[in-house]
Each structure stands twice: as structure tokens, then as C-alpha cells.
Amino acid sequence: MKRLRTVFTAIYRLYEHSGFAMAGAVAFAFVVSLFPFCIFLGGLAGLFGGRELAAEAIHQLFQNLPQDVAEALVPQVEAIMGRTRIDLLTFGGFLALFFATSAVETLRAALNGAYRVVETRSYPACLGLSMLLVLVSAASMLVLTWAVVVGPAFAQQMIEPSWVKTLFDSTWLGPTARYTLGGIVIGAQLLAFHLWLAAGKRRLSDVLPGVVFSVVVWLTIAGLYSYYLSISNYARFYAGLSQLMIAMIFFQVTAVIIILGAELNRGIMEFKKLANGTHPDFMLPTHDGDVS
């Protein structure tokens, strides 16, 4: 009962502190930064496995998304990747990395609001951290691609026993491994966002509940969103823009889930302060005499 009350409190705080509006900004920034990120990912993949690895990495990037969302974005991304080639050590590589940080920077502002912290780091420091997180995210996508695609294929060629091929060809292993690895990568990225992207200092135990909550809810929502799209008709509302809006709405829901995880973490931390006899931040009086 107490945990359920904490979740409902976090939802209310999300509404009270404009979390839904910030989620819209994060979703827009994500769409804006998606194409530069894919270009940067292609350039990074070129250093290790060529365009084939880049193509597989892009495929894996959209693999866990609802089918309609992926169908709206993949053709445009493939078109960009087909005619845009960059060297990471050129100015074009730096620009791709810079514009790819748009979503991370917007998410930083949203997480700062959820944790009620004020940014004290300089802009160059924040921008450098965002670029580092984008670089780590791109590298993690390549690792995930190798683990899901290249690794099994390599194992089948190098190991003779027939049970290996049977194991990798089984109907349950592919989706299970994909979603498990995807959940691990998403969880690791969220941990980095909560621990280092947002201002202030938090321990792993402080942010872990919100991260687990976000990953579980996101995987559930992704499946339900696919079912919802199969029984709805977005073209009635958005006509030719329906595919774009499907992606935008899903990204906004994703941002809401991430910010809600931060609100949940903050609520748990404040309840711990209250239990320890420390005056919690959410009980401090506001300018009009009410409690925040």
C-alpha cells in the first residue's frame, strides 16, 4: 500500500511540476537528434565493422520499438544513411555528435526538474558530458548488435555440435535474448542519466527503483502500444502525418516514463528522510504558505 501511494504521489508531482510538458520537449528533441545520432552511429561503426555493422546497429536500434513506430522512421533513417557518410575525425563528425546531444540536454533539464535540483555545472561541462553519453550510447548499440547478430552467427560457424545451431535457431531465444539485452542496455543508460546527467549527487540505491520501474513499464507500454495501434486509426486525426505522430506520441510516453522514474526516486528519498527524522524537501513551505 505504501509503495502504491508512492507511485501515485510521483504521478501527481509529475503533473504538478510540468513533467508532461517537459516530456513533449524531450520527445521533440529526440526526433530532432535521432538522425544525427544515426549518422554518428554509422561513422563509429565504420571504424570497426563497416556499413554492414552500421546497418545492423540501426536495425537493432528500432527492433524493440512498436512496429508502427519503426515503420515510420526506418525508411527515412535508411535514406539518410544511404547518402550521408562522415569521418568521425572531421568537423562533420563533430556536428553530428553536437546535434545528437539535443535529446540528452533536454532530458537533463527534465531530470533536474524532477529531482528539484539546480544546475551548477558550466555549459561546456554539461555539453561535454552529454556528448560522452551519446558516444557511450552509440558504442553500446554496436555491442548489442554484435551480441544479438554477429555473436550467434560466429558461434554457429566455429562450434560444430548441432545443438548450438538448434539453440540459436529456437523460436524463443531470439526474442527473449533481444528484449533481455535491450532491457539491460536501456537500464544501464538510464542509470547513467540518473546518476551523472542530472545535477546533484545520488547513490545507486537512490536511483535504482526508478530505473527498474521505467524499464519494466516501458517494455510493457511498448507491447501495449503496438496492440493499440492495431485497433485504432490515427489517419482520422493526423491524415498524412499519422506515421510521424505515432512516433512522436510514443517518444513522449517514453519521456513521461523516464521522468516519472525520477519523480519516484525523489519521493522514496524524501520518505526516507522523513523516516530518519530529517525535514523532507517536499514538506517545505512555498511562497503562498502551502506545502510543495
Results as ranks from 00 to 15, higher is better:
residue 10 A to L: 05
residue 251 F to P: 01
residue 105 E to F: 01
residue 98 F to V: 10
residue 120 T to I: 11
residue 30 F to A: 14
residue 50 G to H: 02
residue 76 Q to H: 12
residue 256 V to G: 02
residue 261 G to N: 06
residue 60 Q to L: 14
residue 72 A to R: 03
residue 125 A to W: 10
residue 36 P to D: 08
residue 191 L to H: 13
residue 227 Y to E: 13
residue 177 A to D: 10
residue 254 T to A: 12
residue 20 F to Q: 04
residue 162 S to N: 08
residue 223 G to E: 04
residue 272 K to L: 09
residue 40 F to Q: 06
residue 170 S to Q: 05
residue 216 V to E: 08
residue 287 H to R: 14
residue 234 Y to S: 12
residue 235 A to L: 03
residue 278 T to D: 06
residue 246 I to H: 00
residue 31 V to D: 00
residue 198 A to K: 00
residue 284 L to G: 02
residue 79 A to G: 14
residue 125 A to M: 10
residue 105 E to K: 02
residue 287 H to E: 13
residue 107 L to S: 01
residue 131 M to S: 12
residue 149 V to P: 00
residue 49 G to L: 05
residue 181 L to E: 01
residue 271 F to T: 08
residue 87 D to V: 02
residue 222 A to R: 12
residue 111 L to V: 09
residue 18 S to P: 00
residue 137 S to P: 00
residue 22 M to D: 11
residue 287 H to A: 15
residue 202 R to Y: 08
residue 292 S to D: 11
residue 36 P to S: 10
residue 44 L to N: 04
residue 67 Q to R: 13
residue 215 V to D: 02
residue 189 Q to L: 15
residue 290 D to H: 14
residue 36 P to Y: 07
residue 97 L to P: 03
residue 68 D to H: 12
residue 148 V to A: 01
residue 10 A to P: 01
residue 109 A to V: 06
residue 151 G to W: 13
residue 12 Y to L: 11
residue 190 L to V: 08
residue 223 G to V: 04
residue 12 Y to G: 09
residue 87 D to W: 06
residue 102 S to K: 07
residue 109 A to G: 04
residue 158 M to D: 05
residue 72 A to L: 04
residue 99 F to D: 02
residue 286 T to E: 10
residue 176 T to I: 08
residue 2 K to E: 14
residue 10 A to R: 04
residue 16 E to L: 15
residue 255 A to W: 03
residue 140 S to T: 11
residue 212 V to N: 12
residue 16 E to F: 15
residue 130 S to C: 12
residue 277 G to Y: 07
residue 188 A to G: 10
residue 99 F to Y: 15
residue 247 A to I: 09
residue 88 L to H: 01
residue 272 K to C: 10
residue 191 L to P: 00
residue 25 A to M: 09
residue 204 L to M: 09
residue 122 S to M: 02
residue 41 L to H: 03
residue 65 L to A: 11
residue 57 A to Q: 03
residue 277 G to M: 07
residue 122 S to T: 15
residue 83 R to W: 14
residue 32 V to P: 03
residue 25 A to H: 07
residue 278 T to L: 12
residue 36 P to H: 03
residue 147 A to F: 08
residue 40 F to A: 13
residue 111 L to Q: 01
residue 175 P to R: 08
residue 180 T to E: 00
residue 236 R to N: 15
residue 157 Q to H: 12
residue 144 L to G: 09
residue 216 V to Y: 06
residue 283 M to R: 04
residue 198 A to Q: 04
residue 131 M to G: 13
residue 72 A to C: 07
residue 31 V to C: 09
residue 112 N to P: 04
residue 238 Y to P: 08
residue 24 G to W: 06
residue 70 A to S: 14
residue 126 C to I: 14
residue 66 P to H: 05
residue 246 I to E: 02
residue 198 A to G: 05
residue 139 A to H: 01
residue 189 Q to H: 11
residue 146 W to C: 10
residue 258 I to D: 02
residue 265 N to Q: 07
residue 64 N to K: 00
residue 6 T to E: 11
residue 283 M to S: 09
residue 1 M to D: 15
residue 193 F to S: 05
residue 23 A to Q: 11
residue 267 G to Q: 14
residue 16 E to S: 15
residue 288 D to N: 14
residue 266 R to V: 02
residue 189 Q to R: 07
residue 9 T to H: 11
residue 6 T to L: 08
residue 180 T to I: 12
residue 233 N to K: 07
